[in-house]
Amino acid sequence: MRPFVLAALTAAVFPAALHPNVALAWGGTAHAVIDRAAIEAIPDDGPVFLRKQVDYIAGSASLPDGWRGDSEPFSKIEEDPNHGWFKEQFAFLKPIPRSRYAFVIALYKHYEAIKDKDPLTAQRTNVRWTGTLPYAAMESYERLIACMRQVRALRAEGKETAFAEQHCAFQVIRLGHYIGDGAQPLHDSVNSDGWRGDNPKGYTRDRTIHGRFESEFVDGMALTTGDIAPRIGAAGHREGDMFDAVLAYLDEAASHMEQVYVLEKRDRFANFKDKDVRELVYARTAKGAAMLRDMICRAWAESAVKPAPLKPSPLDPANPAYDPETGSAPAQVGA
């Protein structure tokens, strides 16, 4: 086989193969397990058409990691922050803005305020080292609603829905990746790649902890969908503000960050039979699958509601919430 053909096929199956600097979040195994478990847990009154797409969705679960290669700098700049939420970096920011751009502007203003008196903190007070995961998740979630609305409209007109269903599946791939990342505690802390700052408990500063936990251990323990399916439970998040639910989900995941470091001190995740580490993996991936399933089902329910035009428009300076720095009003609560 010609080398360039082999390389192309390899990249299609393993997106990071041509991007050696990309660290695969959760590894391909856990992402695929989370996505498949979520789709299989969709109840019969949900978007069951996605069951036909489950192999495509699970097989493409790591696709967004392939958009982060150094060789595609524009894509990398936009995509890298979408995979993390290093909450310690923006503890000063309350409440969290309901606009990606308002969040970025707030970070820059804080950077300007502290760059001289606290240059070390300022060095990481930027969008790359804070992350934009909840915004990426909500953007994919709302695109999924729009796709599902199209499925409903085509059904009502008696038209073919195959392409619209594929569009929905692609948005599930994106949403599933970000939600899967968020379930991994090291994606929700500045300690994502080794302990930072004061270290009285002697946790590792080795940057490989991230990959050793989420990839090497998960592959070594041979995680399967069957391991977590019984843990997912009934569908939730049927009401309430979804952005707030995503933030709470990330906060809960972050609360397990130190547990990862405590368990790493035993044997650097080398014992694939370690019951405590296995339990942590089961619990976190099940949480990810449950949240993804809930967001998919909530999107389906939202797609049944005919959207009312907002007046005045979010882009209209007459809108009371209009932000001249971003050129738009932020997302409404419950929108």
Score class of each variant (00 low, 15 high):
Q184S: 04
D116Q: 11
A146L: 10
V281M: 00
A321C: 09
V305Q: 02
D274Q: 10
W67A: 13
A25H: 06
D45G: 11
E88H: 01
A329D: 07
I228R: 03
E79I: 11
P320E: 03
A222W: 10
Q53F: 05
Q150F: 13
D181E: 01
A91F: 01
D198H: 12
V127A: 14
A304M: 12
A164Q: 01
M148D: 02
A321S: 09
A222Y: 05
D294H: 02
T285P: 05
D274F: 06
V260N: 04
K311A: 02
Q166E: 13
A16D: 15
V48W: 07
A234N: 11
G327K: 03
P307W: 08
K201A: 06
H256A: 06
I228G: 03
A91I: 08
A229Y: 05
A17H: 00
G131F: 04
I179R: 02
I145R: 00
L175M: 02
P20E: 14
F86G: 08
Y178L: 01
L175R: 00
A283V: 05
I77W: 07
A290D: 02
H177T: 00
V172Y: 06
H110V: 06
V305R: 03
F92G: 13
S140V: 06
F103Y: 14
P314G: 04
D294E: 03
T326S: 02
D251L: 05
P95A: 10
A222T: 13
L310T: 14
T225I: 11
G182M: 00
L50R: 09
A169L: 04
P200G: 11
A37C: 14
F217Q: 09
N126P: 06
N319K: 01
I145D: 00
